[in-house]
Computed example of a mutant assay.
Amino acid sequence: MEWKVRGIRGATTVAKNAPRAIAEAVNELLDEIEAHNQFRAEDIVCVFFTTTADLDTMFPAAAARKRPGWDHVPLIDLDQMKVKGSLEYCIRILIQVNTPHAQSAMVHCYLRQAQNLRPDLDLQIYS
């Protein structure tokens, strides 16, 4: 089997701009992504997080770094481009992983209000 780098996308929202809310949302999102894609931390190439401007009390990467095995994963936080009328309190993610699976096999996870961003990728269709 040939291993290649694949991208996994996802997003979630938080109810308020608070470290605990951000950490819980990040961990919930990562739990779902890991469960549906079955990779290990050592398979991760890097992870990009973006947040909307209204989230500024915690870096999402700080929550991810506390996950078992994630202490050596390259993580970065970035600002999400501001677009008028776009979803607020939103955290987006792009994980690049080494995997033998095709890109079409990657399961992208959109939770909470972020489900509206990609209704075509609703997790219910994978159940």
Rank of each mutant, 00 (worst) to 15 (best):
M1T: 14
M1K: 13
E2H: 11
W3Q: 15
K4Y: 14
K4T: 12
V5N: 15
R9K: 08
R9F: 13
R9I: 02
G10H: 04
G10T: 04
A11G: 08
A11V: 05
T12L: 07
T12P: 00
T12A: 05
T13W: 00
V14C: 09
K16C: 14
K16L: 14
N17K: 10
N17E: 05
A18F: 09
I22P: 04
I22T: 03
A23N: 05
A23I: 03
A23R: 04
E24F: 06
E24N: 11
V26W: 04
E28V: 06
L29G: 03
L30K: 00
D31T: 07
E32T: 08
I33Q: 01
I33H: 03
E34F: 07
A35I: 00
A35C: 09
H36E: 08
N37G: 05
N37M: 08
Q38Y: 07
F39N: 09
F39Y: 15
R40T: 06
R40C: 01
A41F: 08
A41R: 02
E42D: 13
D43V: 08
I44Y: 02
I44C: 08
V45D: 11
C46G: 07
C46Q: 14
V47T: 08
V47P: 07
F48S: 08
T50E: 13
T52A: 02
T52Q: 02
D54Q: 00
D54I: 02
L55K: 00
L55A: 06
L55M: 02
T57H: 01
M58T: 08
M58P: 04
F59H: 15
A62G: 12
A62M: 10
A62N: 12
A64F: 04
A64R: 00
R65W: 08
R65D: 05
K66I: 07
P68M: 03
G69S: 06
G69R: 10
D71L: 14
H72Y: 12
H72R: 15
V73Q: 05
P74C: 14
P74S: 14
P74R: 13
I76D: 01
I76R: 15
D77F: 09
D79H: 15
K82H: 14
V83W: 10
K84L: 11
K84A: 14
G85T: 05
G85V: 02
S86I: 00
E88R: 10
Y89I: 00
Y89V: 02
C90Q: 10
I91S: 04
I91T: 00
R92L: 02
I93C: 03
I93K: 06
I93R: 00
I93S: 03
I93A: 01
L94S: 10
L94V: 11
I95N: 10
I95L: 13
Q96S: 09
N98T: 06
T99V: 09
T99R: 04
P100T: 08
H101V: 11
H101W: 12
Q103D: 09
Q103A: 10
Q103Y: 07
S104D: 11
V107P: 02
H108W: 03
C109K: 03
Y110E: 01
Y110F: 13
R112S: 12
R112A: 12
A114F: 04
Q115H: 11
N116Y: 10
L117C: 04
L117I: 05
R118Q: 05
P119H: 07
P119R: 01
D122Y: 10
D122W: 11
D122Q: 11
L123A: 04
I125L: 12
I125Q: 12
Y126A: 15
S127R: 09
